[in-house]
């Protein structure tokens, strides 16, 4: 996925001179190309005028990106770990998200803020999943690709969007090649066309059709859900797996249609249970599809604790395929 993201950035930078990158350690010669090598080599091609290394100043990175967007650029900024978004929160939630509104619709803020998320034995301050915080702020779009193909198409769309987009990338999905190889990372394969393609926001993808239950997931949890679906199929249960791909906007009609067909909904997210994005999905389904539901909605999420360090605890914390299977079984055998 690293290569797909890099390709998206490279293509967009070649296409549009106004696209610049901002972040810590993203373009230093002999450096890493960002915390997860996504920007590796881009400063060689585009120079330091366009691949701009910043001080460790997350608030300023977000504020500068916002200001530059107001001034006509299309910045793609990043934090090394999504957890650091909290330092940039004021600039993102109070400035980037609201300037269009406060100006009465006269301004646009075309910027992307990339953020790696997910628990990866780095403990409580380098492993959180933060989608819900941003989904809650009107004026921000939220993308969360689960595979290289989507990553490229969604990132290119994000760069061209006239609104601020928070773009979440799961650390275990970056790919297991290269110097920054993640232990436990998935090598998610998939063909990523070299030519131009865009994936519109707000289009969920049905990865596996099924009649018995609907599983809605994002990021790494899409893969755990697919794994669970395979296990369930061995027992004759056909789960439909939907990858939301973007949370704002969220493709409600695809989710509604599936639930209307299966009558059962399981939401899988790596975020803490309380107030996670799954809670919003559950509420909307309860609101719009209650007549179709044959069983309670189940959420499989991380418990309401910080991300633990010890691998045994982390394994317990992150939703597993087994837990998803158990949740599906529980709703399928409801009554």
């Amino acid at each position: 996925m690293v290569e797909a993201l890099r390709e998206a950035l490279r293509e967009e930078m070649r296409r549009d001179e106004r696209v610049i990158l901002l972040g810590e350690d993203i373009g230093v010669e002999g450096g890493f190309g960002g915390a997860f090598t996504v920007t590796l080599g881009l400063s060689e091609e585009f120079g330091h005028r366009r691949v701009i290394d910043t001080p460790i100043s997350e608030a300023a990175i977000a504020g500068v990106a916002t200001g530059a967007a107001l001034g006509g650029l299309r910045p793609v900024a990043d934090v090394q770990y999504g957890d650091f978004l909290f330092l940039a929160m004021d600039q993102l939630a109070n400035n980037a998200a609201k300037l269009r509104y406060m100006s009465g619709g006269k301004l646009t803020v075309p910027m992307v803020f990339r953020a790696p998320v997910g628990a990866t034995t780095r403990g409580a301050q380098h492993g959180q999943s933060l989608e819900a915080f941003f989904m809650h702020v009107p004026g921000l779009k939220v993308a969360c690709p689960s595979n290289p193909y989507d990553a490229k198409g969604l990132l290119k769309t994000a760069v061209r969007d006239d609104n601020p987009v928070i773009f979440f990338e799961h650390k275990l999905l970056y790919g297991s090649k290269g110097s920054r190889k993640e232990k436990g990372g998935l090598q998610v394969l998939g063909v990523v066309p070299e030519e131009e393609y865009l994936i519109p926001f707000g289009q969920a993808k049905v990865l596996r059709p099924g009649r018995d239950a609907t599983i809605v997931a994002n990021l790494l949890m899409v893969h755990k859900s697919m794994q669970a679906a395979t296990m369930l199929a061995d027992d004759g249960i056909e789960a439909e797996v939907i990858d939301v791909r973007t949370l704002v906007p969220l493709d409600w009609s695809t989710v509604f249609e599936s639930v209307e067909k299966t009558g059962k909904l399981i939401i899988v997210e790596e975020d803490n249970l309380t107030g996670g994005w799954g809670a919003e999905v559950a509420a909307r389904i309860a609101d719009s599809c209650i007549d179709y539901l044959d069983a309670p909605i189940r959420r499989v999420a991380a418990p309401d604790t910080p991300v633990p360090f010890a691998p045994v605890m982390e394994n317990f914390y992150v939703p597993s395929a087994e837990k998803i299977v158990a949740a599906v079984n529980a709703v399928v055998s409801w009554r």
Binding site: R49, G63, V64, A65, T66, G67, A69, L70, L73, P75
Partner: peptide
């Protein structure tokens, strides 16, 4: 930071 960003756009453009 917003002012700095706006100034960056002037410099860049």
């Amino acid at each position: 930071p917003l002012a700095a960003g706006c100034a960056l756009s002037f410099q860049y453009l």
